[in-house]
Protein backbone atom coordinates (compact mmCIF):
# COMPACT_ATOMS: atom_id res chain seq x y z
CA UNK A 1 0.00 0.00 0.00
CA UNK A 2 1.05 3.61 -0.44
CA UNK A 3 -0.87 6.64 0.82
CA UNK A 4 -4.50 5.83 1.57
CA UNK A 5 -7.53 7.07 3.44
CA UNK A 6 -7.99 4.78 6.42
CA UNK A 7 -10.55 4.59 9.20
CA UNK A 8 -9.47 4.63 12.83
CA UNK A 9 -12.06 3.78 15.46
CA UNK A 10 -11.04 5.80 18.48
CA UNK A 11 -13.19 5.83 21.60
CA UNK A 12 -16.10 4.47 19.58
CA UNK A 13 -15.93 7.17 16.92
CA UNK A 14 -14.65 6.69 13.36
CA UNK A 15 -12.00 9.04 11.98
CA UNK A 16 -10.89 9.10 8.36
CA UNK A 17 -7.21 9.84 8.12
CA UNK A 18 -4.72 9.91 5.25
CA UNK A 19 -2.04 7.44 6.29
CA UNK A 20 1.25 6.26 4.88
CA UNK A 21 2.95 3.03 5.98
CA UNK A 22 5.70 4.74 7.93
CA UNK A 23 3.31 6.73 10.16
CA UNK A 24 3.19 5.74 13.81
CA UNK A 25 -0.05 5.37 15.72
CA UNK A 26 0.93 8.05 18.23
CA UNK A 27 1.33 10.61 15.44
CA UNK A 28 -2.03 9.71 13.88
CA UNK A 29 -3.72 10.09 17.27
CA UNK A 30 -2.00 13.32 18.27
CA UNK A 31 -1.39 15.12 14.98
CA UNK A 32 -3.97 13.80 12.50
CA UNK A 33 -6.90 13.33 14.89
CA UNK A 34 -5.86 15.89 17.50
CA UNK A 35 -6.19 13.71 20.58
CA UNK A 36 -3.15 14.88 22.50
CA UNK A 37 -3.92 13.07 25.76
CA UNK A 38 -1.64 10.26 24.58
CA UNK A 39 1.87 11.33 25.58
CA UNK A 40 5.13 10.84 23.71
CA UNK A 41 7.79 9.84 26.24
CA UNK A 42 10.83 7.73 25.41
CA UNK A 43 9.81 6.53 21.96
CA UNK A 44 11.42 3.19 22.70
CA UNK A 45 8.90 1.14 24.65
CA UNK A 46 10.53 1.78 28.00
CA UNK A 47 8.23 4.31 29.68
CA UNK A 48 4.63 3.48 28.77
CA UNK A 49 3.53 7.15 28.53
CA UNK A 50 2.15 6.49 25.02
CA UNK A 51 0.01 3.54 26.13
CA UNK A 52 -3.35 3.21 24.40
CA UNK A 53 -5.73 0.24 24.37
CA UNK A 54 -5.92 -1.68 21.12
CA UNK A 55 -8.92 -3.99 21.30
CA UNK A 56 -8.79 -3.54 25.07
CA UNK A 57 -5.10 -4.44 25.46
CA UNK A 58 -2.35 -1.96 26.40
CA UNK A 59 0.13 -1.23 23.59
CA UNK A 60 2.84 1.34 22.91
CA UNK A 61 1.41 3.84 20.39
CA UNK A 62 4.99 4.97 19.68
CA UNK A 63 6.00 1.50 18.42
CA UNK A 64 2.79 0.65 16.57
CA UNK A 65 2.59 1.23 12.83
CA UNK A 66 -0.64 3.16 12.30
CA UNK A 67 -1.62 0.97 9.34
CA UNK A 68 -1.79 -2.07 11.62
CA UNK A 69 -4.43 -0.33 13.78
CA UNK A 70 -6.79 0.52 10.88
CA UNK A 71 -10.41 -0.51 11.50
CA UNK A 72 -9.59 -1.77 14.99
CA UNK A 73 -11.00 -0.49 18.25
CA UNK A 74 -8.74 2.00 20.03
CA UNK A 75 -9.21 3.62 23.44
CA UNK A 76 -7.28 6.72 24.43
CA UNK A 77 -7.48 8.65 27.68
CA UNK A 78 -10.08 10.96 26.07
CA UNK A 79 -12.45 7.98 25.84
CA UNK A 80 -12.75 7.34 29.54
CA UNK A 81 -14.56 10.35 30.96
CA UNK A 82 -18.31 10.65 30.42
CA UNK A 83 -18.65 14.33 29.51
CA UNK A 84 -17.47 16.30 32.53
CA UNK A 85 -17.74 13.25 34.80
CA UNK A 86 -14.47 11.46 35.34
CA UNK A 87 -14.22 7.69 34.92
CA UNK A 88 -13.98 5.98 38.36
CA UNK A 89 -10.31 5.13 37.65
CA UNK A 90 -9.53 8.78 36.89
CA UNK A 91 -11.44 9.90 39.99
CA UNK A 92 -9.54 7.37 42.11
CA UNK A 93 -6.22 8.76 40.84
CA UNK A 94 -7.35 12.29 41.75
CA UNK A 95 -8.65 11.24 45.17
CA UNK A 96 -5.51 9.25 46.04
CA UNK A 97 -3.22 12.09 44.97
CA UNK A 98 -1.68 9.69 42.46
CA UNK A 99 -0.88 12.46 39.98
CA UNK A 100 2.26 14.56 40.30
CA UNK A 101 3.49 16.09 37.03
CA UNK A 102 0.79 14.09 35.23
CA UNK A 103 2.77 13.08 32.17
CA UNK A 104 2.59 9.34 32.89
CA UNK A 105 -1.01 9.49 34.08
CA UNK A 106 -2.89 8.81 30.81
CA UNK A 107 -0.82 5.67 30.28
CA UNK A 108 -1.16 4.64 33.93
CA UNK A 109 -4.94 5.06 33.83
CA UNK A 110 -5.34 3.11 30.58
CA UNK A 111 -3.11 0.26 31.74
CA UNK A 112 -5.16 0.20 34.94
CA UNK A 113 -8.34 -0.06 32.87
CA UNK A 114 -6.92 -3.04 30.97
CA UNK A 115 -5.93 -4.66 34.28
CA UNK A 116 -9.31 -4.18 35.95
CA UNK A 117 -11.23 -5.31 32.85
CA UNK A 118 -9.26 -8.56 33.01
CA UNK A 119 -8.90 -8.93 36.78
CA UNK A 120 -11.46 -6.95 38.83
CA UNK A 121 -9.87 -7.85 42.16
CA UNK A 122 -6.09 -7.69 41.73
CA UNK A 123 -3.67 -8.11 44.60
CA UNK A 124 -1.08 -5.42 45.27
CA UNK A 125 1.53 -7.67 43.61
CA UNK A 126 -0.67 -8.14 40.54
CA UNK A 127 -1.17 -4.37 40.28
CA UNK A 128 2.56 -3.72 40.43
CA UNK A 129 3.27 -6.45 37.88
CA UNK A 130 0.64 -5.19 35.43
CA UNK A 131 1.81 -1.57 35.71
CA UNK A 132 5.52 -2.43 35.50
CA UNK A 133 5.74 -1.09 31.93
CA UNK A 134 4.51 2.35 32.98
CA UNK A 135 7.17 4.53 34.56
CA UNK A 136 6.49 7.54 36.79
CA UNK A 137 9.63 9.66 36.88
CA UNK A 138 8.23 11.69 39.75
CA UNK A 139 8.51 8.19 41.30
CA UNK A 140 5.20 8.38 43.14
CA UNK A 141 4.24 4.74 42.83
CA UNK A 142 2.72 4.18 46.28
CA UNK A 143 -0.27 6.42 45.62
CA UNK A 144 -0.70 5.03 42.12
CA UNK A 145 -1.01 1.50 43.51
CA UNK A 146 -3.43 2.81 46.17
CA UNK A 147 -5.48 4.53 43.46
CA UNK A 148 -5.73 1.28 41.48
CA UNK A 149 -6.82 -0.65 44.57
CA UNK A 150 -9.40 1.99 45.33
CA UNK A 151 -10.65 2.08 41.71
CA UNK A 152 -10.98 -1.70 41.74
CA UNK A 153 -13.18 -1.52 44.83
CA UNK A 154 -15.33 1.26 43.35
CA UNK A 155 -15.80 -0.58 40.04
CA UNK A 156 -16.72 -3.81 41.84
CA UNK A 157 -19.48 -1.81 43.56
CA UNK A 158 -20.83 -0.75 40.20
CA UNK A 159 -18.90 2.50 39.98
CA UNK A 160 -20.45 4.10 43.10
CA UNK A 161 -18.08 5.70 45.57
Amino acid sequence: MAKEIATFIVNGQGYEVIVEPHMLLIDVLRDSIGLVGTKYGCGAGDCGACTVLLEGKPVFACLTLAVTARDRSLTTIEGLADGAGLHPIQQAFVDAGAVQCGFCTPGMVLTTKALLDENPEPTRGEIKAFLAGNLCRCTGYVKIVEAVESAAGILRNGGAR
Partner: peptide, 12 residues
Amino acid sequence: IASIVSMQTKVM
Protein backbone atom coordinates in the same frame (compact mmCIF):
# COMPACT_ATOMS: atom_id res chain seq x y z
CA ILE B 1 8.17 -14.78 30.31
CA ALA B 2 7.08 -13.41 33.70
CA SER B 3 10.61 -12.05 34.10
CA ILE B 4 9.87 -9.67 31.21
CA VAL B 5 8.11 -7.04 33.25
CA SER B 6 6.57 -4.66 30.69
CA MET B 7 2.96 -5.64 30.06
CA GLN B 8 2.84 -3.67 26.79
CA THR B 9 5.92 -5.51 25.52
CA LYS B 10 4.27 -8.84 26.32
CA VAL B 11 0.93 -7.79 24.78
CA MET B 12 2.58 -6.66 21.53
